[in-house]
Amino acid sequence: MSTDNRPRCAWLGTWAGAADPLYRVYHDEEWGRPCTDERALFELLTLEGAQAGLAWITVLRKRENYRRLFLGFDIEHVAAMTDADVEQLMQDAGIIRNRAKITSTIDNARAWLTLREAQGDVVAWLWSFVGGQPHQNRWQSMQKVPARTAESDAMSKALKKAGFRFVGSTICYAFMQATGMVNDHTVDCFCHAEAADTPFKPFTSR
């Protein structure tokens, strides 16, 4: 973990579990960086849904277990999981053992595949809610950062219509932040400029 004193978003020092090195690595290397990889997007949408009602550090600490148990978030494999798989997952303390959240991951994988058939490119479809390019916000403080926006409202509505669960507007906005659809690093954070300068990779559906 980096031990430098570069300025960072204030939430890194105030959120539950913020002292955990996982948080700084996540903030410095992933959060707010544009993501256009389909499997990674499915993973982050799953984890944001799993976080509902909990501290994000709880999910970060279980992330590798989620990757192991959900087969690297291979969407086709997750969609093929059965009731027996759900029962097995419910016995594993490595993830959040909430039946609704576990079954929603499988249902969401199936909805994702259906959406892929309808749209052709789910990645481009998701990014279309921000016009296909990252929104470069310039927040002066974390108090200015919204919990939801018109764009996240629209994404939530569309995902629910497509059969997804645990995709409320607040979850969708957190997903947009995590995947760099919006750059919500505050302007005093060294990551703001780095995220803005991150090359925007072509969409990759599979």
Rank of each mutant, 00 (worst) to 15 (best):
D85R: 05
A100N: 08
M81Q: 12
R110C: 12
A84Q: 14
E64D: 15
R68Y: 02
L113E: 06
N98T: 10
A79G: 09
R116D: 05
A100Q: 08
D85Y: 04
F70M: 02
N65Q: 13
T103R: 01
I75M: 12
G94M: 03
L71H: 11
R63M: 01
N65C: 10
H77F: 01
A111I: 10
K101C: 13
H77V: 04
Q91H: 13
T105D: 01
A109R: 01
A93E: 08
L115H: 07
D85G: 05
T105E: 00
Q91R: 15
M90C: 10
L69C: 11
N108H: 04
W112N: 02
G72V: 13
T114A: 15
L60T: 02
E64V: 03
K62P: 05
D85A: 05
T114K: 13
A111G: 15
N108A: 08
N98H: 14
R99C: 01
A84N: 12
A84R: 13
N98S: 14
R61D: 02
K101W: 05
W112P: 05
R68S: 10
D107P: 04
T103M: 04
E64A: 15
R116Q: 10
D92A: 14
A93T: 06
M90T: 07
L69N: 10
N65I: 01
R63E: 09
D107M: 04
N65T: 10
Q88P: 09
T82M: 07
R63K: 15
R116C: 05
A80M: 00
D92W: 12
T105G: 12
L69R: 12
R97A: 07
R99Y: 00
G94A: 03
E76N: 09
Y66R: 07
I102V: 13
F70W: 00
D85L: 05
R97E: 09
N98E: 08
N108M: 03
L89E: 10
Q88A: 15
E64H: 14
Q91Y: 10
I96T: 05
D107V: 06
I96C: 07
D83M: 07
H77G: 07
R61E: 06
S104I: 11
E64T: 13
Q88W: 11
N108K: 01
F73R: 01
G94F: 03
A93F: 06
